[in-house]
Structures are given as C-alpha cells and as structure tokens.
Amino acid sequence: MSLNARERMLRRAARDIGAGMTVNLGIGLPTQVLKYVPADLAVCLHSENGIAGVGPVRDRANADRNLIDAGGAYVSPLPGTAYFDSAVSFAIVRGGRLDLTFLGAFEVAANGDLANWIIPGRLTPGAGGAIELAQKARKVAVITTHTDKHGAPKIVVRCTLPLTAPGCVQRIFTDMAVCDVTPEGLRLSELAEGVTVAQVIAATGAPLIVPQTPLPRF
C-alpha cells in the first residue's frame, strides 16, 4: 500500500467521526485516524486502558510516563479528561456508550463477521478489548488493507479464523474502497482515486453489489 493510499483511507475513515460522538480507535491502523480528525471537532476519544477524552500524542521528550493509550502511545489530557480503572472502562463499552469504533482485521466477512485476534499456532496476540468493542459499540467499522501482504483478499465470504464477534461490522475502509455490510450482501460504496471497480472485485474474496450510479471517490 502506497503512503498516499494509506493516507486517503485514513482521511476517509476520519470523516465518519461526527461531532458529539464517543469513539474508540483500536490498536494499529485505526489509531492513525487520529491525525485526520479536525482539531476543533467536539469528539470524546475513549481508550480502554482507562481514559475518556484522549488528547494529542506527545513525543518522548514531553511524555508523561503514566499516560499512554491502549496502543502504548504517549498521549495528553484535555480540559475535561477523566481516568478510571479497567472495570469502569469496559462498563463504558458494554453499557453502550460508544458511538463508533474502528478496528483492524485479519479477515472480515461479507456478513459482518470479524476475525482479528488469533491465527492459531502462528500469531496469537489475544483480543485485548476487541471482543467487547466489536460486540457493543453502536457502529463498528474495520480499517484494513484490501489484501494481505501476499495479495490474498482480507474480505471473504466466511472467516476461516476464530471470530472476534459475529455479524458486528457495518463498514469496511480499505486502501481501495469503502464497502458496507447490507442485508442483501456486501455493497461497494466508494472507490479510492485511481482504482477501478474491476480491480476491487478482483481483490475481494466475496461477491460485491456494485451500484449502477457513479461511485464517490476518496
């Protein structure tokens, strides 16, 4: 994925964050979305290690050793930031206080199933808080490269890996497209600049519903 394509994907995902939302950005690509959220947007970022109101990332020289986000980045407080323990943090998640979460994916299926915590016997990081985020955030969107590093589709008909949560994903942002999970199937909703519908179809492991109208570009 070129830097340009990655930046466009992240910038596009950031546009789904609206004023007044409480949002959790998962570890990995999703955390990078923060750079593209307008500084004046009234949004409360939640981090599962115990922060509501996560402020901008700090460099090492200005870091507070006691203040990281769940991905380990040193962050800062804002006026109104709150800290709390891990039980309270997940009460926020399970209690339905998150409007939106962005998560990474090993595989995501056309029916919204998500697998992102274990490749048995090979890569076994564990789920952290992803199971609760995937199951309980009001809207779950995945941010991922369209294909893995071998060029194989990450969007598939059915996940082969153990699930994080079934049927949880509503939207998928990739370096090639925005796709939406609908009752009729996976719909191609937007295209990245310079990418054709045929290229997206070829890189996707599940059937895509392609609207007849021209697709927005990002």
């Binding site: 323990d85 997940f90 789920a127």
Partner: peptide, 18 residues
C-alpha cells in the same frame, strides 16, 4: 504458548476486569 511451554487462557479484557 505455541511451543506448549506455558498454558495461556485468553479472557476478553473487560471480562477479565469484571
């Protein structure tokens, strides 16, 4: 874990806390 030298039980983070 993958060599079987330790056993690992994964628990969802908030369920572990609770």
């Amino acid at each position: 874990m993958n060599d079987g030298r330790i056993s690992v039980e994964f628990v969802p983070q908030g369920i572990l806390a609770e």
